[in-house]
Structures are given as structure tokens and as C-alpha cells.
């Protein structure tokens, strides 16, 4: 670098630092800027509240919002005015798209864009190395997603669960057959219907994954690579839960409701423990 160039560069840096100093002196704190952006997207939050209130979706998103709120002070402390222009531009684009979606797209798409706006803005305001991906994940999980997931992903999940359960039961010598999303086990028909698809378990597992990554300050790259493992754990857990319950239902005696609940909760606890252990463990090397 030539001496003139260095002088020019230093001059530009000096100008930038002066601008930042001015910003530090007169501008909004980053977290307030983020709050203002969130407030601008109020129609989406109103819609989400309506979905929770009218019972059309499980209010699980409130738990994700609570997790975001609990981690907010720590994030606020790390937020800086050294913003990433790329992420901020993405945030602005998502914000414009979210506002436009109010008029042209289904409400869930608009809310999804609104959540992405906040995720991108958070990423822009956070220094590299902070687990912003986990924060974005929690923001997405805060959306009323369960019903839509059930509608679009429920059937493939049911088919996959029924088929894998059939193979598992056959391996243990049971007389099992799959027919669509139903199973014929020891001559009794048992359906793997929508509440059996495992969508709720998927949400719980990814919620655990995001919360664990936040708590463990897991870098984005590490978190992203471990998410694939979370998917495998959920599928295995749901197949195990379904297989045990199918075996119970195939008995002549009716199965008590508490036993149904007990099996489901026990398997869920196993899945969540595995997910938290996987995502929350300290990263050595790449993973």
C-alpha cells in the first residue's frame, strides 16, 4: 500500500469513527432500533395473537417467545453499532416483503417474513460468533406453525413413522402390515393419524436444540451441522413411541389414557435429553 493510499485509508477510517462516535452520542441504542422494527411489524403479531387466542393453533410459540425474552438482556449487551450491511439490507428487504405480504400473501407467509426480518436484523446487530442462528430459530418457532406443519408435513411423517414402525415390529416378530397411514398389527387395525405424526415432537426437539445452542453460545456453523442429527433423533423417537403404543393397542384389553400419556412423555424426555446433549455439548474442532 502506498503512503498516499494509507493516508487516504486512515482518513476514511477517521471519518467513519467520527460518524460512529456521533451515532453513539445521538443515535438510538441498537436494541431499541430492533424494538422499533418489531413494532413496525405489529399486524403480524396481532395475527399471531389471534391464532393463539382462537385456539386454531397450539400456543407453543409463547414458550419460544419466552425463551427469546429471557435471552434478550444477554443479546442486548452484545449488540453493537458495527452492523453488517448485508444482513441489514436483508432485514430491510424482508421487512418490505413482510409489509407487502399483508396485502398479497397468506398471513403465515407474512408472519414468517416478519420473523425473518427480526432474525436478520439481530444478526446484523450482533458481532460474528454469537449464536444468532439459534435466536432466529426460536423466532421461527414462535410462529403458529403446528397446524400448518401438520397439514403439509403431517402425512409424509405419518407414512414414514408407520413404515418404520412396521419394520421395527416385524423385526421383533410381531405380525405387522402397513396400509396407507394405518397399521394392521396382530389382526387389529390401528391408525397413525394426524395427532400421531410427531409434529409436536419435532417442534419440541428443535425448541430444545435452539435453547441449548443459545445457552451454550454455540457458533452458528456448529449448530447448523448438529441440526441434522436432531432430525434423526426425532424420527427415531417418534417411531419408538408409535411402535410401543401400537403394540399396546394391539392387545385385546383397552389401553388406559395415563399409559398412553406416560409412554409419550417418557419417549419425549429421552428425545429432548439426546437433543440437548448433542447440541449443548462443547464443540471441539468442527463439530
Amino acid at each position: 500500500m502506498s503512503g498516499d493510499g494509507m493516508t487516504a485509508s486512515l482518513g476514511m477510517a477517521g471519518t467513519r469513527h467520527r460518524a460512529q462516535d456521533a451515532a453513539a452520542r445521538d443515535g438510538l441504542p441498537p436494541v431499541l432500533w430492533l424494538a422499533a422494527l418489531a413494532a413496525a411489524l405489529w399486524p403480524h403479531w396481532l395475527w399471531m395473537a389471534g391464532r393463539w387466542r382462537d385456539g386454531s393453533d397450539d400456543p407453543l410459540g409463547l414458550a419460544a417467545l419466552l425463551a427469546v425474552a429471557l435471552s434478550a438482556p444477554r443479546y442486548a449487551a452484545h449488540m453493537t453499532r458495527q452492523v453488517s450491511g448485508l444482513w441489514l439490507t436483508l432485514a430491510l428487504a424482508a421487512c418490505v416483503a413482510a409489509t407487502a405480504a399483508l396485502f398479497f400473501a397468506p398471513p403465515l407467509v407474512g408472519a414468517l417474513l416478519a420473523a425473518l426480518t427480526l432474525a436478520a436484523a439481530s444478526r446484523a446487530l450482533l458481532p460474528a460468533g454469537q449464536p444468532s442462528l439459534a435466536l432466529g430459530g426460536l423466532l421461527l418457532l414462535a410462529l403458529p406453525l403446528i397446524s400448518s406443519l401438520q397439514f403439509y408435513a403431517g402425512f409424509p411423517l405419518r407414512i414414514a413413522t408407520a413404515q418404520l414402525s412396521t419394520w421395527l415390529l416385524q423385526a421383533f416378530g410381531a405380525e405387522a402390515q402397513r396400509s396407507g397411514a394405518a397399521m394392521l398389527v396382530n389382526g387389529r387395525l390401528i391408525i397413525v393419524d394426524a395427532p400421531c405424526s410427531g409434529v409436536q415432537m419435532v417442534w419440541m426437539a428443535y425448541f430444545c436444540a435452539c435453547a441449548a445452542a443459545l445457552w451454550a453460545q454455540q457458533p452458528n456453523g456448529v449448530f447448523l451441522r448438529r441440526l441434522a442429527g436432531v432430525g434423526a433423533i426425532v424420527l427415531a423417537g417418534n417411531v419408538l413411541r408409535n411402535s410401543v403404543l401400537v403394540l399396546l393397542e394391539a392387545q385385546p384389553a383397552p389401553v388406559a389414557a395415563w399409559l398412553h400419556q406416560g409412554v409419550g412423555l417418557m419417549v419425549l424426555a429421552m428425545v429432548c435429553t439426546a437433543v440437548v446433549s448433542l447440541v449443548g455439548r462443547k464443540s471441539h474442532g468442527l463439530v
Binding site: D193, C196, Q200, C208, G264
Partner: peptide, 23 residues
């Protein structure tokens, strides 16, 4: 026709919080 529904959502959330707290 019997089926294999997931557990109650409230209880499931309690389990998740318990697992997180334990961790």
C-alpha cells in the same frame, strides 16, 4: 379405531422445561 396420539401439549412442555433445567 385406536391410534397413537402424542401426549398432551402442556405436559410435553413441562417435560421439555424439566429436561432443559436438568441440563
Amino acid at each position: 379405531v385406536p391410534s397413537t396420539p402424542e401426549p398432551d401439549v402442556g405436559l410435553a412442555l413441562l417435560v421439555v422445561i424439566g429436561v432443559g433445567g436438568g441440563f
